[in-house]
Amino acid sequence: MKGHMNTEMGEIIIDNEVVAKYAGSAAVECFGIVGMAAVNVKDGLVKLLKRESISRGVNVEIDNDNMNIDMHIIVAYGVSITAVTENLISNVKYKVEEFTGLKAGTINVYVEGVRILD
């Protein structure tokens, strides 16, 4: 289901892909995040996504003006995963709520890998 809001001037419908791209962009701005991950369930392989396909690492479900977001990330080696994910959730929640006007429900973070930065 898409994000749906009624205003006094008309109706606003937000596609899940738009929210996913925005959430992915907000995520990679966070300290300690190397990038978004695509998981191949069949092979169990994790792939670091390029900037153009960042939304593939994000799954958004919108129901009754409430968003649930799943994010698959790769973190930098040597950082505190707890600190990075708490910062990520806070940052994405704030930015997506401001961007869409919808309330963020749950934001689930799946750490799919660790990468040593060059």
Results as ranks from 00 to 15, higher is better:
residue 1 M to T: 07
residue 1 M to C: 10
residue 2 K to E: 15
residue 3 G to M: 02
residue 3 G to N: 04
residue 4 H to A: 09
residue 4 H to I: 12
residue 6 N to S: 12
residue 6 N to V: 15
residue 6 N to W: 10
residue 8 E to P: 06
residue 9 M to S: 14
residue 15 D to S: 12
residue 16 N to M: 01
residue 17 E to C: 06
residue 17 E to K: 14
residue 18 V to Q: 01
residue 21 K to W: 01
residue 21 K to P: 00
residue 21 K to Y: 09
residue 21 K to F: 11
residue 25 S to P: 07
residue 26 A to I: 06
residue 27 A to S: 13
residue 29 E to Y: 07
residue 29 E to M: 13
residue 29 E to P: 09
residue 30 C to N: 09
residue 31 F to D: 14
residue 31 F to Y: 14
residue 32 G to C: 06
residue 34 V to P: 00
residue 34 V to H: 06
residue 36 M to D: 05
residue 38 A to P: 03
residue 40 N to Y: 06
residue 42 K to H: 12
residue 43 D to M: 09
residue 45 L to N: 15
residue 48 L to W: 03
residue 50 K to G: 14
residue 51 R to L: 14
residue 52 E to P: 05
residue 52 E to V: 06
residue 53 S to M: 10
residue 53 S to L: 09
residue 57 G to L: 04
residue 58 V to R: 01
residue 58 V to K: 05
residue 59 N to S: 12
residue 61 E to G: 10
residue 61 E to Y: 06
residue 62 I to T: 06
residue 62 I to M: 07
residue 63 D to S: 14
residue 65 D to L: 11
residue 66 N to I: 12
residue 67 M to H: 07
residue 69 I to G: 01
residue 69 I to C: 00
residue 70 D to T: 01
residue 72 H to V: 00
residue 72 H to S: 07
residue 74 I to N: 04
residue 75 V to N: 02
residue 76 A to S: 13
residue 77 Y to P: 01
residue 78 G to F: 03
residue 79 V to H: 05
residue 79 V to L: 08
residue 79 V to A: 05
residue 83 A to N: 13
residue 84 V to L: 08
residue 86 E to K: 14
residue 86 E to D: 15
residue 86 E to L: 13
residue 87 N to R: 12
residue 87 N to F: 02
residue 89 I to D: 04
residue 90 S to C: 10
residue 90 S to M: 10
residue 90 S to I: 08
residue 91 N to H: 12
residue 95 K to R: 15
residue 96 V to D: 01
residue 97 E to N: 08
residue 97 E to Y: 06
residue 99 F to R: 02
residue 104 A to T: 12
residue 104 A to G: 07
residue 108 N to A: 10
residue 111 V to T: 05
residue 113 G to F: 00
residue 115 R to H: 11
residue 115 R to I: 13
residue 118 D to C: 10
